[in-house]
Design a protein around this nucleic acid. Sequence first.
DNA 1: ATTACTTGTAACCGAAACAATTACATCATG
DNA 2: CATGATGTAATTGTTTCGGTTACAAGTAAT
Lengths: 144, 144
Amino acid sequence: MSISSRFAVGIHILALIDLNKETASSSEFIAGSVNTNAAVIRKIMGMLKKAGLIEVQPGVAGAKLSRELSEITLFDIYKAVNVVEVNELFSIHDKPHPDCVVGKNIQSTIEPIFMAAQSAMEKVFQNLTLEDIVKDIEAKEQVQ
Amino acid sequence: MSISSRFAVGIHILALIDLNKETASSSEFIAGSVNTNAAVIRKIMGMLKKAGLIEVQPGVAGAKLSRELSEITLFDIYKAVNVVEVNELFSIHDKPHPDCVVGKNIQSTIEPIFMAAQSAMEKVFQNLTLEDIVKDIEAKEQVQ
DNA sequence: ATTACTTGTAACCGAAACAATTACATCATG
DNA sequence: CATGATGTAATTGTTTCGGTTACAAGTAAT
């Protein structure tokens, strides 16, 4: 099990749009950097657009961020690319036997714990923005 | 995407073994409570046994916990059933283009963040034990 | 020792999710 | 109108999951 790379690619796309803002970033160009097919990029960019993170126009190359780098959290991207549904990171077996002490109560016992675990994970992304990502990339570039 | 229900089922199995300790819990009996096939239960119990959480003997019905309830964390179970590999909760696209500023640095920028998110999630399970689960189930039973 | 019941595994199946790919309609622009 | 871009649907191969069947091997009681 692994969470879709759409999330990592989404971050990549947005960082690239910003760091390459002097020229238009076509889906073909971004696909080259990500190393995948342009249609995959367009699909993910469609999600980012739908979430209001970028502005793209059909037929015209390039995209721009809808907000400041510091106003786009990793959680915004995470939600945009739809990699994990709300409260569904962990599967729970359904229809445990209702006549059993454990079967009857296990779901309501486990659910809040699973929710808390998922929230703890998501909170990490809420506290980081694209600005952190871009600055980190720029810092690495300085060193070299 | 969703993390395998083996984790939820593993918790269910261990709680049931404890709450039903006056009689032997055969895989058939547990399967009835979980509402699945006995072979599925035996497979998961094999993992729990391998992780040293339970003791089972081939041919003889029932299993017993190897440790006290308070000495078995949910993280122990989580690791035992092997639902998420170390540092692999999130997929990262591989071979981004090395000649691109973003492609060159994105992996090393994102990896520690993904690790931190996974750790935050896992820490929730490290801080909870089977005792918490069993007590919660018992408390619910009292009310009814 | 034979019978009945159990655990331990392996093999197989259908369903679902992913990422890649191809194709094509639609749109914008020179 | 020709070119090149986005938007989107359909298809494919791979992997994982959970369920199922089958059966070998172990245990225990008669």
